[in-house]
Design a binder for these strands. Structure first.
Length: 610
DNA sequence: CCCCCCCC
């Protein structure tokens, strides 16, 4: 921390403090580390290691070897500069529980104190009031706005005006994580992981053209956008996958609605922006960064959310041409189905040339950064947008893990389809108890809500289970008995000598949390009763006992229901009506898998089935 | 300064 080189330092971790997530950027951990003689609380853990803290792997008293780090100088106005270490890579040599205690009697390290005076100096030093560390080493759990600001302002090395004007080189660049609107003199060395096409816009305020690119380095990632003149200047020069030195852009808050890039800010090119290709491809600069979510968790996303995910392309639909109703444009799309280890499957829509060129042969691994969630049909599906990045069989650990898992799957594995449409059979959608459905006010919104539940059929009303309907094939209208052997359909405006019976059952279903009146129309009704509507009608006419037996057989039996909840208004009175779309005997194997996954999620053990 | 991203 005096500025010298240090290869793989070994330190003890004495404490950690979470810095909460803000504006969509993830939480980070600040560590209190000790070398046995000195303490330092200005160590930040790179976010990809957060799980080591949350899992308890990196607990208090752990001994770690830091195999890759950046030390950066923070401009700390009025208090002299401070050095902050970002721990990029590390190995846990001994777990905290194995060590069990603090080694030595470390004292706070004061910036500027010389190394060889360490012990004596440390003992006589009075800690600064601003220090986060007490003499006894207690880590005061205090992270201030100021310290966050400092972190945002730190630089890998101070850059003065002279160095800015000289050719940029690797030793004087800033980590992307340090960029903020409050500091202008920075140079980053970053890889362009994706670049959009040039897009033209025109609205009430202005018109023009733009393109954007995603940039990453070992500290983080950021999106940059170039407008108008900068498009002409830089579009051809900037190539996907290449590393550049970039300086003199402005920074502003990023709108999380349009990106999954893990940064509070985004960059805009200006007239002064400099972009210089880095001649040697520096492999220390990573390529695309994903923040994958398991497919089953997409159910918890809101329509319009942007997410990263990875899955096996289980099937590929044909290319479809269609005309957009809103823009009248000719569109080409292709749907593919992805599955992952959470045993969920989801529909992904590709557009344009990407749809045309896609080939799903060999069931490749598909990784997507920034796909857009949609809720068509009450389930969830994902659609690519112009800023999305799709990778086919990417060479990343998650992809290899998925491949290995999928290739070993037995054939009888069932996936829970998140993209099942409301009216279709299948298990897509959320599972709720009846109590939860009420609490969540399902069906109280503008649109219908679909959900699944396990419940017992408590009662079916035997009165009015069937009605006499118009015999015209696609007409379901109730006919009026003319009492002369003729039946009139108002909808078809015709009289018939015959009619057909249709089911409209009113039933009460219940689970431990509550009960609910539901309606079953023709198909669901026949499915439940196991006989055709015509038969039900005949039995009603002919035999009370047989007719009643039909309902008795299904009463107090367990089922799994797919339900639709929708607000309906009748005679000025609004209420939520619940309709059964499908009813099946419970699939207990599937239910157990779901319960096990829920337990794993709730206990933080991960939701993947291994 | 965009932020539209389509269809059932």
């Amino acid at each position: 921390m005096s500025g010298g080189e240090m290869v793989h330092p070994v330190v003890q971790v004495l404490g950690s403090k979470m810095i909460p997530a803000s504006q969509g950027s993830g939480e980070r951990y600040r560590l209190l580390i000790s070398d046995g003689i000195h303490l330092n609380s200005f160590a930040m853990l790179a976010t990809q290691h957060n799980s080591k803290i949350t899992s308890g792997e990196l607990s208090e008293n752990s001994i770690i070897k830091i195999t890759n780090h950046i030390v950066s100088v923070v401009k700390n106005t009025g208090k002299g500069d401070k050095r902050i270490m970002v721990i990029l890579e590390m190995e846990i040599l001994k777990r905290g529980s194995e060590v069990g205690h603090r080694i030595g009697n470390p004292a706070p390290f004061t910036e500027g104190a010389r190394d060889n005076t360490q012990q004596e100096t440390a003992q006589h030093e009075t800690p600064q009031p601003s220090s986060d560390v007490k003499p006894n080493g207690e880590f005061i759990r205090r992270i201030t706005v100021e310290s966050l600001q400092n972190l945002a302002n730190y630089s890998r090395r101070s850059i003065n005006d002279t160095t800015l004007n000289s050719p940029m080189n690797t030793t004087m660049t800033h980590p992307i994580i340090s960029l903020s609107p409050y500091q202008n003199n920075w140079v980053i060395k970053a890889r362009v992981t994706s670049k959009t096409a040039i897009r033209h816009w025109s609205n009430a305020r202005s018109e023009g053209k733009l393109f954007s690119m995603d940039l990453v380095d070992e500290s983080g990632e950021i999106r940059a956008t170039a407008f108008k003149d900068q498009v002409d200047k830089f579009y051809d020069m900037i190539e996907e996958g290449k590393v550049y030195f970039i300086s003199k852009c402005t920074l502003k808050m990023a709108n999380k609605k349009f990106t999954t890039i893990n940064n509070d800010y985004e960059m805009t090119f200006t007239n002064d922006t400099k972009v210089v290709p880095c001649m040697e491809d520096d492999t220390s600069i990573p390529s695309l960064k994903f923040n994958f979510v398991n497919l089953n968790l997409i159910l918890d996303s809101q329509p319009g959310d942007m997410i990263d995910f990875i899955g096996i392309c289980q099937s590929t639909a044909d290319l479809v041409s269609l005309t957009s109703k809103t823009t009248n444009r000719e569109l080409k799309k292709r749907d593919i189905t992805l599955v992952d280890r959470s045993l969920a499957s989801i529909n992904l829509t590709l557009w344009g040339t990407q749809a045309e060129d896609f080939c799903g042969d060999g069931q490749p691994v598909i990784a997507v950064k920034g796909g857009k969630v949609s809720d068509f049909g009450g389930g969830r599906s994902v659609s690519l947008v112009s800023s999305s990045v799709l990778q086919l069989n990417p060479d990343i650990p998650e992809a290899h893990r998925l491949r290995g898992w999928y290739d070993c799957l037995t054939e009888d594995v069932k996936f829970n389809s998140l993209s099942t449409r409301g009216g279709e059979t299948g298990s897509g959608g959320k599972w709720y108890t009846l109590g939860e459905a009420t609490l969540l006010q399902l069906g109280c919104g503008d649109k219908a809500d679909y959900f699944n539940c396990y419940a017992t059929l408590m009662h079916v009303r035997t009165e009015k289970s069937v009605y006499k309907a118009c015999p015209t094939p696609d007409c379901q209208k109730k006919v009026i008995d003319q009492n002369n052997g003729m039946y009139r359909c108002e909808k078809c405006n015709r009289e018939f000598e015959n009619f057909k019976y249709r089911l409209m059952l009113s039933a009460n279903i219940g689970d431990y949390s509550g009960n609910q009146w539901v309606t079953l129309f023709q198909d669901a009704g026949e499915e439940l009763l196991g006989i055709k509507a015509d038969e039900v009608g005949k039995l009603q006419e002919e035999s009370d006992s047989e007719y009643n037996e039909v309902f008795k057989k299904v009463t107090l039996m367990p089922y799994q229901f797919r339900l639709r909840a929708k607000m309906e208004t009748f005679n000025d009175e609004s209420r939520v009506k619940i309709t059964v779309f499908t009813v099946k005997k419970p699939d207990y194997k599937e239910r157990c898998t779901r319960l096990i996954n829920e337990i794993k999620e709730m206990s933080g053990m991960g939701s993947c089935t291994s």
